[in-house]
């Protein structure tokens, strides 16, 4: 395998890992506050649709991003209504949100564009263009490092950089700010937060709103950057892979980066090769696509390091007498 090939596989790892990363961080905020979120998939999907639709109509990718974020937040709000205000089952709400997203995107898409649920192809300013970092062109000639800088580090959509910046930002917010302290506390013991005079409901809604924003960016990236337009079910299980990555990362931001990039790498490799031959072993690419899920089951089983979710996760908060 040549150096060029490695760089190009890593390059697509970053492209494919970014939506996972954003969605995974979204799940991290939500679940750290005690709200299970299996609706990452649905939120990404609506965002992918509305961002592409608005970007197409206005010709402006940034307006598309706003629409994507707004639609994802509406879905996040529905989840909040069900799981925080009305203390319903968070998992059932998540299932409903995913279904609603896959139905409504096609329904509205067909109504608006008459293309069977997809948007017309995006081009020009309707799509996020790759950003060339300074000196990428100049350093191209430097052996190895130049290629790495030009191909791997430079030349991604601005949303990729946003995604990567979100990792230290999430870490900082979570562990260095008042909001982060309260957020982590409300996911572990909401009664402690409540008796300390802080609103459990407000905290959880803010966590869910952040999750909405991040899923909005992730969905927008899918349709307005990675692809050029919306396609039916285009999230293709990425929300669930992000969920798997979140467990794999044990609800921690830096680990989330590692887990999502690992899963991005698996995706990149299976896209590139139909089968992988390691000596006598033929690994079919269907296996590669199942690896994130298998790894997560192994982690969940606790054979390799136990993944302990936030203690109050999944349970609506009811004041006790």
């Amino acid at each position: 395998m040549s150096f060029d090939t490695i760089v190009s596989i890593l390059d697509s790892t970053i492209r494919l890992g970014t939506p996972l990363l954003l969605a995974c961080l979204a799940g991290l905020f939500s679940e750290r506050s005690g709200i299970f979120d299996i609706g990452l998939e649905g939120k990404m999907l609506v965002a992918a649709f509305f961002s592409a639709a608005v970007a197409y109509v206005t010709g402006n990718a940034w307006l598309g991003l706003l629409a994507g974020i707004a639609s994802s937040m509406v879905f996040a709000f529905i989840h909040g209504l069900a799981s925080i205000t009305f203390r319903g089952n968070q998992l059932i709400s998540g299932v409903a949100i995913n279904m609603l997203a896959s139905g409504i995107t096609v329904l509205i898409g067909q109504h608006w564009f008459h293309l069977g649920g997809i948007t017309p192809a995006l081009s020009g300013g309707a799509r996020f263009q790759d950003v060339a970092l300074p000196f990428a062109q100049a350093l191209k000639g430097v052996p190895y490092l130049g290629l790495v800088y030009d191909q791997l580090i430079s030349g991604h959509s601005v949303l990729v950089y946003v995604g990567f910046l979100c990792v230290p930002a999430t870490w900082w917010v979570l562990f260095k700010t008042r909001f982060g302290l309260r957020l982590r506390a409300v996911g572990e013991n909401p009664a402690a937060v409540d008796t300390a005079g802080v609103s459990v409901v407000a905290l959880r809604y803010s966590a869910i709103a952040i999750a909405g924003i991040l899923c909005g960016i992730a969905g927008t990236y899918l349709s307005c950057s990675l692809a050029a337009g919306f396609g039916r079910e285009m999230t293709a299980g990425r929300g669930y892979i992000a969920l798997a990555a979140l467990i794999f990362a044990k609800w921690r931001p830096w680990y989330a980066l590692g887990a999502t990039m690992l899963f991005g790498l698996l995706d990149a490799v299976s896209n590139r090769y139909q089968t992988i031959d390691i000596g006598m072993l033929h690994i079919p690419n269907q296996f590669m696509s199942a690896v994130p899920f298998i790894l997560t089951v192994v982690i969940l089983a606790g054979f390799v390091g136990k993944a302990i979710p936030p203690r109050a996760g999944g349970e609506p908060y009811v004041k006790e007498r």
Partner: peptide
């Protein structure tokens, strides 16, 4: 499109399941 059924289905799950208390 037939995806209308997905929407109805999702709403049924939402209202009979998650939003039961509402």
């Amino acid at each position: 499109p037939p995806q209308l059924i997905l929407v109805i289905q999702a709403l049924v799950i939402l209202f009979t399941g998650a939003l039961d208390n509402m």
